[in-house]
Simulated scan of single mutants.
Amino acid sequence: MQKNNKLLRILSFFVIVGFLYIGLLQFKISQFSHLKASRNADYLIVLGARVNGVEPSLVLASRINAAAKYLKENKKTVVIASGGMGPGEDISEADAIKRELVKQGINESRILLEDRSTNTYENIKFSKRLLPLQEKSIVVVTSTFHLYRAISLAHFQGLSVDGLPAKTPWLAVFKSYSREYLAITKFYLERYLLGFS
Rank of each mutant, 00 (worst) to 15 (best):
L24T: 14
F187W: 15
F187V: 05
L133S: 12
L60D: 04
L60G: 04
I80W: 01
P169Y: 04
S109L: 08
G83A: 11
V161Q: 02
G163D: 00
K136C: 07
L171M: 12
T144L: 04
V17Y: 10
V78F: 06
K28C: 13
I10G: 03
D162A: 05
W170C: 02
F196W: 15
N40E: 12
D90P: 00
V51F: 08
N65V: 13
H34W: 03
S137Y: 02
L7N: 11
R50M: 09
I97Q: 09
A66Q: 08
I97S: 08
L194A: 14
V78K: 14
R99S: 12
M1G: 15
K6L: 12
N74G: 00
S62V: 04
D90G: 03
A96V: 07
F27C: 15
K186N: 13
N74Y: 01
I184P: 06
S30I: 11
A154F: 03
N52M: 09
H155G: 09
S143H: 05
H146Y: 01
F145S: 07
F174A: 11
S176E: 11
I91T: 10
S117M: 10
L171A: 13
R9I: 14
Q134F: 07
Y21W: 15
L60C: 06
V46S: 04
L11C: 10
E89C: 10
V102R: 06
L164T: 00
F126Q: 03
S127R: 08
H155L: 11
I29Y: 09
S117T: 12
N4R: 13
H34K: 11
P169E: 06
G158P: 06
E135M: 01
E122F: 10
I97K: 11
R9L: 15
Q104V: 06
S176W: 02
S152K: 15
